[in-house]
Simulated assay, not measured.
Amino acid sequence: MATSSGARRHLASSPFQPDPEPTIETFEVSDLVSHDSHGMGRVTNVEAHAVTVDFKTHKLRITSPYHKLSKL
C-alpha cells in the first residue's frame, strides 16, 4: 500500500484554490505574548526555531510553529 509524504501538488488546471502558505510569526526579545494555555508572558530568548517565554510562574521553551502563541 502506497502512502503519501508531504503536501499534494496543485494542478494549474484545477478549479480549486491552492492552500495558502502558513505564515510563521517571528518574535523578538522583550515582546509581550499570549499563550492559549499559559496566559501572558514576555519573550526572554529567541533561537532559530524556538522562543523562551517567561510566564512569571515558570519559563517555557516553545518550538516553531507557534500555533498557540500570539504577539500582543
Rank of each mutant, 00 (worst) to 15 (best):
M1C: 10
M1G: 15
M1Y: 06
S4Q: 14
S4A: 14
S4V: 14
S5D: 10
S5M: 12
G6C: 08
G6A: 09
R8K: 15
R9N: 08
R9L: 14
R9Y: 14
H10R: 13
H10G: 00
H10S: 12
A12Q: 14
S13C: 05
S13A: 10
S13Q: 12
S13H: 12
S14Q: 06
S14A: 09
S14C: 11
S14G: 01
S14H: 09
P15S: 08
P15L: 01
P15M: 01
F16D: 10
F16S: 04
F16W: 13
P18M: 13
D19S: 07
D19A: 07
D19W: 03
P20I: 10
P20H: 04
E21C: 04
P22A: 07
P22E: 10
T23P: 00
I24R: 10
E25I: 12
T26H: 06
F27W: 02
E28L: 02
E28F: 00
S30D: 13
S30F: 02
S30P: 00
D31E: 08
D31W: 14
D31F: 13
L32E: 03
L32K: 14
L32F: 11
V33H: 04
V33T: 03
S34F: 09
S34N: 05
S34C: 02
D36H: 12
S37Y: 06
S37D: 06
H38G: 00
H38Y: 14
G39E: 07
G39K: 04
G39V: 03
G39S: 01
G39A: 00
M40D: 07
G41D: 04
G41S: 03
G41F: 10
G41R: 02
R42Q: 04
R42W: 04
R42I: 09
R42C: 01
R42G: 00
V43W: 01
T44N: 03
N45G: 02
N45K: 13
V46Y: 05
E47I: 00
E47M: 05
E47H: 10
E47L: 01
A48Q: 12
A48L: 09
A48M: 04
A48P: 06
A48N: 09
A50K: 06
A50E: 09
A50F: 07
V51C: 05
V51P: 08
V51W: 02
V51A: 05
T52F: 00
V53A: 02
D54C: 13
D54Q: 10
D54H: 06
F55L: 10
F55E: 09
F55P: 08
F55K: 08
K56M: 15
K56I: 15
T57P: 00
T57W: 14
H58Q: 15
H58F: 14
H58N: 08
H58M: 15
K59I: 12
K59Q: 15
L60F: 09
L60V: 15
R61I: 11
R61A: 13
I62G: 04
I62L: 13
I62N: 07
T63G: 03
T63S: 09
S64K: 12
S64I: 03
S64M: 12
P65V: 15
Y66P: 01
Y66H: 11
H67I: 14
H67L: 11
H67K: 13
H67C: 03
K68H: 11
K68Y: 08
L69G: 02
S70T: 11
S70Y: 05
S70L: 04
S70F: 02
K71N: 01
K71M: 00
L72C: 06
L72Y: 11
